[in-house]
Amino acid sequence: MKAANPVEADRAALPRDLHWQRYKYPESLYSYGAWIVVLSFLAFSVEYLSIPLERIPAMFERMAAVIASRYYPPDIEYVMDRDYLDYVVQTIQMAYLGALFGLLLSVPLGWFGSFNMTPSRRFVYPVARLFTMGFRAVHEMIWAILFVSILGFGMLPGVLALTFFCAGFAGKLFAEEIEAINMGPVEAMRAAGANLFQTMVFGVFPQVRVAFTGIGIYTWDVAFRAATVVGFVGAGGMGWYLKRAVLQIETERVAAIILSIVILVLISEVLSAFARDRVMRMK
């Protein structure tokens, strides 16, 4: 050994276990094991779903060909139509109502489902958690299908589906927000003899007001995205146009509708970012 480099010489002189490692012996085994399990599960999935991996390179060509030949140029006139614009307005209204009702529902859900503020940890907390999870777990399209089958076609089932979706979405975020508050004011309120409701209104609410408003605006944004497609199953809004164009294989119209959805979502995203920014600055 030459040991021309003093640093190398020092390192060679170190006892073996002083070499730095992220994971030491048993943990390193677990981490490698976890990687192997995950990767082999993914490989097994490819096998199980019989995915033709060799076809993937050719697919990009096909994708470009399909877009160029069928979806281009988008039929812009179709989406500038008066009826279609009416449906756009209805979609916005549906998203608005769904988000609003969902938020109203999610405030108690967030309150009861936050571990530090729930009225009863043993009974109310798990129930609220269960409801929040249930609302969230079922996709908005499934809610829409269920409500359409119960209430018939129209925008009411769409509003209800969005309500459930938003209640789950915002309920979870609200609960997390309440769990992160400073408990000082709450304890002060309790010590001064305030009841549950008063603690909530004067101890918790001022702390989370800004965050709640931000979450509310974001919920509307998300609800709008969902509202553009619930019409797909007959729950009102522009999704119905999309479905019709898809079924008629009017691909150029489909492209135009998708384009209009993207533009609307972009606008709503910009608006929501602006509103959230304003709210944050009011803090």
Partner: peptide, 10 residues
């Protein structure tokens, strides 16, 4: 919105 979506359209 309630007027349009819930009352008229249902």
């Amino acid at each position: 919105s309630i007027d349009v979506t819930v009352i008229e359209d249902t």
